[in-house]
Design a protein around this nucleic acid. Structure first.
Lengths: 196, 196
DNA sequence: TTAAAAAACTAATAAGTGTTAGTTTTGTAA
DNA sequence: TTACAAAACTAACACTTATTAGTTTTTTAA
């Protein structure tokens, strides 16, 4: 077989993309060269182009596959018939899970989306704004229905999204705190605060 | 006079560093070329080297000047004789203020510190860990003294730092929300939660 | 075993990188 | 005006970049 061997039920392009995500996370997109990526695959740089179109394409794949996961999940949660607080909890839960299970890719999306080239950059910004707006509406609904305090909905969205995103810092520490405990504590903090 | 004119009571190097921070924020450190920076200053690239040592030096200046501001402020707050909750509030307040008043630089520190070269990279990581540890101790003390709930202190530090850092998203939206309101709301959210 | 397809290789290109050397222009002070 | 220093310039270097072209090797299928 060829040098680039997908583990199972995956294409070679997917394998390259996965390795690219790991490198882009560690060194940044612009600071990662195709030669470096090729070396990791045990291959010369030009050989990569038998499987992918360009370096930029790799970033596209990473960003939009993650964006799509978020989109699908939110849509599903919003259409379910549970309390708004439960919906919020489920959304935070999903963010944390995705951050854990697809760390490299999520990190790259958060840090390198600016390196996308139009039209993908514009499309990405549009999708993100859409996601944030849906979240905003959910919180506004929660306030109306008196499930939530009379807070500023924009600030709440901001605070939640930011806090969850900060889990990348947790990955840095890699301390003995298990994921479930972290998740429980953060949800509690974000929903009920820390003051006695 | 020369083409590079510091506004007032500042060196030319400082002016270049400031413009560099703006560019590094918009495009990323590695994607910003010295020729681009020079163009913004109305000068050819080699002329910059009459005032600065290297591109990397610019990143050093940005990262360590911000780190120093954080360090000084935390030291001051910790040595003041106010309640722990008030200390936390003051710290969050400072983070938000710095994010607003020195947005470009703070953003660059958060996103581009990895591009620092040793020994500066190691030094930076060390300083940051030290800051986080001091914050951790403060929260642990708050729990002991029963000013705070029995939460996991690491998660609380993580959540607070991440939420505040996420203000960069707010700068993106630049909506009609005034800074004081944002600050008040976020502090409230982080300290007392959002559930009724 | 043979033909076709896939995937690797080497060599090269054109563009861009940070930075240095050497020189000329500009501003300052006597 | 003249001397000195600061700050600009042009030209160039040594490297790295993503990517293409053309070719050879490897794998697959008949």
């Amino acid at each position: 077989m060829s040098k680039i061997k997908p583990l199972r039920n995956g294409t070679k392009k997917e394998l390259i993309t996965k390795k690219a995500a790991a490198l882009f996370r560690k060194k940044g997109y612009s600071s990662t060269s195709m030669r470096e990526l090729a070396e990791q695959m045990g291959v010369e740089a030009p050989s990569l182009y038998n499987h992918i179109g360009s370096k930029g394409e790799l970033l596209n794949e990473i960003c939009f596959s993650i964006a799509e996961e978020y989109r699908q999940h939110l849509q599903q949660v919003l259409s379910s018939k549970i309390d708004i607080v439960d919906k919020l909890e489920e959304i935070i839960h999903f963010h944390i899970q995705l951050m854990i299970t697809r760390f490299d890719a999520v990190f790259v999306v958060n840090h390198e989306w600016k390196q996308l080239k139009d039209p993908h950059l514009t499309e990405f910004i549009h999708q993100r704004r859409n996601y944030e707006n849906l979240l905003l509406q959910l919180i506004e609904e929660g306030i109306e229905k008196k499930e939530l305090k009379k807070i500023n909905p924009s600030v709440a969205v901001l605070t939640i999204l930011s806090a969850v995103r900060g889990l990348e810092i947790w990955q840095r520490h890699k301390n003995n705190l298990p994921a479930e405990e972290l998740e429980k504590q953060m949800i509690q903090h974000l929903l009920t605060g820390i003051i006695k």
